[in-house]
Every structure is written in C-alpha cells, then in structure tokens.
Design a protein around this nucleic acid. Structure first.
Lengths: 187, 187
DNA sequence: ACCTGAACACCGTTCAAGT
DNA sequence: ACCTGAACACCGTTCAAGT
C-alpha cells in the first residue's frame, strides 16, 4: 500500500467520519482498510487531531471545487440554487451518510480546536458561495444575502440530519421541496 | 445517593448525551456524577442500550409536556409557533448543548434499534404538535401542515447544530429570524 | 522512509460478595 | 434492595524499535 498510503487513509477516514464521526474514527480499523497496521498511521499523521484536520480540510476543499463547477456550468443563479441541495443529497445516497462537518458540529465539545476551525471553514465556504449566488440578481443586498445563505445552509443540513435519522432519502427531497414552497429556497 | 439513583442517572445521562452523544456516555463517569460506582448502574439499567432507551424516552416525554404547556398557555396558534424555537434554544443556553435526538440522529449507524425508535418518536412528537398548530387556522390542509411541520422541525434542528459549531447563540436567533423573513415560519 | 510489536489506559460488562 | 471490587475481553493511542 505504499504508493499513496496517506491518500488512502484520508479517503477511508472521510467515509468513516461521515457515518460515525470524529470519535468513531479508529486507527486499527482505518489501517486495516488501507492494508497497514494501526500504529503505522501515526507516521503519516502525528495524532488523531492532525488526521481530523487533514480530513476536514480536504472535505471543504472538495466541496469548494464542486460548488465552483456548478457556478461554472450554470450562469443562471437560480439554476445554481436549484442544484445546491444535491450536494448534500450525495452523502445520503452513499449509504445514508451525512456531511462530515455536520457530524463534527455535533461533536463540537470533544473536537480539537484546529479541527473546529476546519469545520467552520466548511460552513464559510458554503455560505460564501450561496451568498454570492443570491446577490447576483442584485435584488438582495450583500448583508441580506449572507443571512439568507446561512439560513439555507442550516436548513439543508437539518434536512439531511432528519433524513438520516429515518434512513429516508425521500424525506430529504420532501423537506427541500417544502423549503421551496415556503419561500426559503427559490422555487 | 439512594433516594433516587435511577433518576439521578437519567439526568446525568441526559446532559452528557446532549454534549457528547450516545457514544460519549460512559458508565464509570456517569456513576461518579451520581456518587456510585460504574457497576452499580447495571442494577438500574441492564445494558447501555436500556439506558439509552430510557433517556431518549424521557427526553421526548419532557418535550411533549413542554409543548402541551405552550399550547395551554397560548390559545393563539401564531403565538405557539413564535415560541417553538425557544424550546431548542434552551439546549444552547445550557453550555452550548444540542438536542439529544439531533446528536443521536447523527449517531444513527451505531445506535441500538430500540434507541433509534425513541429518537424518531421525539421527532414525531414535535412534528405532530407543529402540524396541529399549523392546521388550526384552517388555512393549511392536514397534509400540507404536516409537510410544513417537518420542514420547520428540520430547519430548527439545523439552526441549532450550526449555532453549536460556532458556540454562537446569537447565530441561532439570526437563523430563526431569517426563517421568519423567508416565510418558513410565520413572522 | 515507512512500518510494527508491545505496552498503556480505558471501556462495557459480568459476577460473586457485601450491607 | 442496592451497591461494590475485581476481573475479562477489547479498543484507541503511543513510542521505541525494526527494516
């Protein structure tokens, strides 16, 4: 497994943390997935906190890239907004997982500070993208669009969490539809 | 600690689980809070799953009682809805904790089935109350009011989670305000 | 550079024994 | 009835040591 053990560890840690959180991450199990021993992970990541930081950072970097792709492919802001909930749907499609950062938000009390920082950056990245898209038509002011962006982010994360608690992806879709019907998201 | 060790265990488990989840519950620590030894908890709860069930059940029973009080004190449905977000604010006020069932929803994969059931009942209780209140004016149909009730529940839980991730209760208030401004909650 | 064995501290659980 | 000490099997983590 030497070619890129570090990347393999990051990938395994990401999917595990989406299902069991930062606390659910365990080095022996992670190592087994990668084909090395638990102790070997410490060569790549000096501590669990370092692994947590690396995983959460990679997570928001990937999210930022996906959002940029959506922006690039959709000049129309309304169509960008229509596609946003699909980014959170992906985790549910992957065996009822949730956003890594939602899980870590719940684990806030036990999270190393450096990991907390990355979790917040994930939210910042999403809110900044939403805010930019919302203010594009020039209808909503910058300040209002940021507040709305935060509300959309929080509501979508909540819908994902509720859907997970019932292992029901149709519930997620219904919640998003209702956000649209209520006016939180553009129809 | 004999007068009511069982109740003391339940209370300690509740606050701990609101901060660290079901997985964060450990018998030795819980016992220390109550003034007994870890092994003694097994006299009151045969297994961790049994404790989890008892805590989650008590949690929704208490929530149901609080909601009934609100209904009783406020004949006006609009004023009931105005007060709903305060029930979730309480946990944040208590050292940045969150809803026990939100945390357990995140922990879905590792939860005993009987605990999952109680977590879902918590959501059911909240959704049923919201749905009833929403349909009172007769403006919204029963089916529509239930869908909206679910959306409000999910969005409020999401707001609580996001506020926790920044230990920022003012953010919670701002998110709720924005839900109102957007039309998800009545202004 | 990359990995491992062995050890440590801790956890859920059990159970025989105490009061 | 209610509680405890001691033990068991297991797990996350660390680190000195291997190649």
């Amino acid at each position: 497994m030497s070619p890129n053990a570090r990347e393999a560890i990051l990938a395994a840690a990401k999917t595990t943390a989406q299902a069991r959180g930062y606390n659910g991450l365990n080095f022996r199990e992670l190592a087994a997935e990668v084909g090395i021993k638990g102790a070997s992970i410490y060569y790549h990541f000096p501590s669990k906190a370092d692994l947590g930081v690396a995983v959460a950072r990679r997570y928001w970097e990937d999210a930022a890239a996906v959002l940029e792709e959506i922006s690039a492919a959709n000049p129309d802001p309304a169509s960008c907004l229509r596609q946003f909930p699909a980014t959170f749907r992906k985790a549910l499609e992957n065996d009822n997982r949730i956003c890594l950062c939602s899980f870590m938000a719940a684990e806030y009390d036990e999270l190393p500070d450096a990991v907390k920082q990355e979790v917040q950056t994930f939210a910042d990245v999403n809110v900044a993208w939403l805010s930019k898209v919302l203010s594009t038509p020039g209808i909503i002011g910058a300040k209002e669009s940021e507040a709305r962006a935060r509300a959309i982010f929080a509501a979508v994360a909540g819908a994902q969490l509720m859907a997970r608690s019932r292992a029901d992806i149709a519930l997620y879709d219904a919640l998003i539809d209702n956000y649209r019907a209520a006016g939180l998201l553009p129809a």
